[in-house]
Design a protein around this nucleic acid. Structure first.
Lengths: 349, 349
DNA sequence: GACATCGATCGAATCGATTCGGCAGCACCC
DNA sequence: GGGTGCTGCCGAATCGATTCGATCGATGTC
């Protein structure tokens, strides 16, 4: 019974047509008469043939219908971030017009087991962010001649990018804080490197993650001398850790904290409240992303709302365009500044 | 310049060996002399050959190294649920020993564009949950002769399942509530159907989603007559909506709410507090899942902690086993009951 | 010195479908 | 009735790699 599965040739023979005709019945690339069509379908049914083998089809076609999405973290970690989640959603939408599915790929440098970038049957790749490690991934993918789109990262010539006006947006938020009268500000950043080190960042230390660097640059335009504290990841817990560091020494408390993500901001707020500070009365906090942070109520974060879903969709559409030999068009998206209830003038002491 | 890419035959010719030898150098399936190995690698380098075409390889091998994960929701929606997220993480781990990657597939019934279950080059599939729609997916996949593992769903003979003791666990939690003295209880369920209808569920109404049905059965063992309210999805917001419905009429307020997920429970708690009720003094709330719900502090949810990551890993390993022709072993996992600060005896009025 | 042994390499078949030029049949028109 | 234009189907080449039995030298043994 369990001999090998039927092939399209078997079906063709059973239906009394040539393999090419049978193929055409399934793909619909060429018109066929209603009669043969029915015969082929009946034969397929009789033989339990469920359609062309995608492996063979993709070899011949040179297309697999799969777009790889490359992360540089544990998937669970990546999906913890609502921004990523929304972006994936947009991405799925964006590539769906291609009829493509998304393959989750992780490039953590030294994975030996190999479903990796080197060997995955993908038509195109989307790189999320652009840490140094990602740059390696980029090389690999380009080496394979696979079209690639980079979301929020600098990718070099010929690679369409989906960018956010991180620097300018963050500058605007910082300016808002400055306009309120704050002078004593601490900046809490996203990871500065893939090594995920946590701690104070000196002024001349290189920041290797584009998003982090851009937002930092924007904030520094307004507050060039503000102390900078890097978090190990974007999460409420990490924000709280940073917050405890910041508010731990009562003699050196800032009047405002500029966080590079909403999750971090939420954590900072939590830490502030733990330390007996009221937000925004004693300390102002700004975020970045504009995601819904559960448990932040009744606060409404002053933040930069970024179009996360649109970002994903744009990337998906750029991929689709490249695969259809259209011009690979990148896209620059802009954030919207939203004033919430977590910023106010500094305490008048 | 941009002629077609080099093939392994080109490399072989350039290196002065046969294609088979070149192939073997890349796959390492057969020992080769150091000298030829070096020559082949050099030739590959010279021609810009970056390794075997995965499409051709997978055709010949009959394996693609890809495991499909099938969802029946928007991906963004699915990933909003921390349980799913953790499970994906475990899954990625579990299949990694195969060197396989995960392909995100959505089966929303009528998608016409076709990266779908019918045509995806997957070696195996993992179905998450088992709504009626999923049962169709199951048929499709089995029709293609692809090994499949079902997580928390009834799949029929021969399909390994990764199950949770939903009914028993929920019964235990309900019993705890009963032991505290509660008699007036409302149950808030996960969606009962893919149509995602929200609202009261009558006693004889069929519940088509296995997880929902099992947990409901467990709760009903203790509270057979408790009113049942279905949420449209598992989220804090939905929980809050349900909570507002429940606490909206002051004359008919229950003393305890059994929610089928932590997110729902968190929402119910929020709604209770909106209505001026204190948890657990005025109303007790239990959850299910044991995930970390941001913003629930200072409450610690009384809930059933499920091993979400282990669930995913088990599914991944079952897949790996099937592909290696081992016995497909399912697994029954158990939840741990955790008493938190959201349950207490009913108010003594 | 002949023969068995072992390791590295080669040849040819194969995986399963798609594609495209060509060809047969038919209807239509003048 | 012969030429023209369509439709619908067929054949054969092709996509790029893998696999396995055969081959070929070289080494080791008696």
């Amino acid at each position: 019974m369990s001999t090998r599965r039927a092939t399209i040739s078997d079906v063709a023979r059973e239906a009394g047509v040539s393999p090419s005709t049978a193929s055409v019945v399934f793909s619909g690339k060429t018109p066929t008469s209603e009669a043969t069509r029915a015969r082929v379908l009946a034969a397929a049914d009789a033989l339990g043939y469920t359609g062309p083998d995608p492996r063979a089809a993709s070899l011949r076609r040179g297309r697999s219908g799969i777009v790889g999405v490359v992360f540089d973290t544990h998937l669970g970690t990546a999906f913890l971030d609502p921004v990523t989640t929304h972006m994936m959603d947009g991405l799925a939408d964006g590539v769906s017009r291609l009829g493509a599915a998304l393959l989750l790929l992780r490039d953590d440098g030294e994975t030996v087991s190999e479903p990796s970038l080197h060997t995955a049957p993908i038509d195109a790749a989307v790189l999320i962010g652009c840490s140094p490690r990602m740059r390696d991934s980029l090389e690999i993918v380009r080496g394979r001649g696979i079209p690639v789109v980079v979301v929020e990262g600098d990718a070099g010539e010929g690679v369409p990018q989906v960018l956010l006006d991180n620097a300018e947006a963050q500058r605007a938020a910082a300016q808002h804080v400055a306009d309120l009268g704050h002078r004593d500000v601490v900046i809490v950043t996203l990871p500065t490197d893939t090594s995920r080190r946590r701690g104070w960042v000196t002024a001349d230390e290189p920041v290797r993650v584009d998003v982090t660097a851009d937002r930092l640059a924007g904030a520094r335009e307004v507050f060039p001398r503000a102390p900078v504290l890097a978090a190990a990841t974007s999460s409420i817990d990490e924000g709280a850790i940073a917050g405890r560091t910041i508010f731990g020494d009562p003699s050196r408390r800032p009047t405002a904290v500029i966080a590079q993500s909403d999750l971090l901001a939420a954590g900072v707020i939590r830490a502030a409240e733990e330390a007996g500070l009221r937000v925004p009365h004693d300390v102002s906090v700004t975020g970045f992303d504009g995601v819904v942070v559960d448990g932040l109520a009744p606060h409404v974060l002053t933040t930069l709302v970024q179009p996360a879903t649109a970002k994903g969709r744009a990337a998906g559409e750029a991929v689709a365009a490249m695969l259809e030999d259209d011009e690979p068009s990148g896209l620059d998206l802009t954030c919207t500044f939203r004033v919430g209830t977590t910023t106010a003038p500094p305490p008048t002491t």
